[in-house]
Design a protein around this nucleic acid. Sequence first.
DNA 1: TAGGCCATCTGGTCCT
DNA 2: AGGACCAGATGGCCTA
Length: 193
Amino acid sequence: MDSVYSDIDSNSCDFFQHTDDEESRGSPRSSPGSPEPEQPAQPQKKRRRGRGRSEGAVPVVRKNRRVKANDRERNRMHNLNDALDTLREILPAFPDETKLTKIETLRFAHNYIWALSETIRIADLQAGKSDASLLRREAPSPGSDACSWSSCSGSSDSSSPSYCASSPGSPAAADYLPHDALFAFRSFVPGIY
DNA sequence: TAGGCCATCTGGTCCT
DNA sequence: AGGACCAGATGGCCTA
């Protein structure tokens, strides 16, 4: 009655040991595309996971297909986690900081991008101001400053990234000075919810 | 011990 | 037909 797949993953890597700090970086996870070698399942713990819905007689063909699908799905999720880890690596990190969870990583990245964008925008505005007289003389177009920013976002005001205004984690633009925006990321981490 | 996070299994749906 | 993607379910680990 237990699922026929009960111990399919009993030979998967020891992610349980690494869930917190090295779930993918240092884990001996199998390379994508290559199924884990048929090493004897760790006898210490029952690794059964999943619903185990399948019961009774399952056609061998169907079972094989399911096993292959499970393997692909596992690899897919591993790739997803690898991408998440890559994202974690490029985000500002602090020593002794516990690893960000998945949702925290995504939200932090969101805020990080937003703050960088704000930094660029404000810097462009300031540069535009200082060159205003020059620009006016040489380029009569009033919107010529920071044109690169506005063109890429499709909107020229500070709320152009819609996720800025709508995101509960994004601070108000007025709270930021260009030079301390990066340091303000730190405060995003606890407040990313 | 409860709750959060996570990995995995599974079946459904869509796409090639 | 088979693979990719998705969401729900399940159970293990960890921490407050």
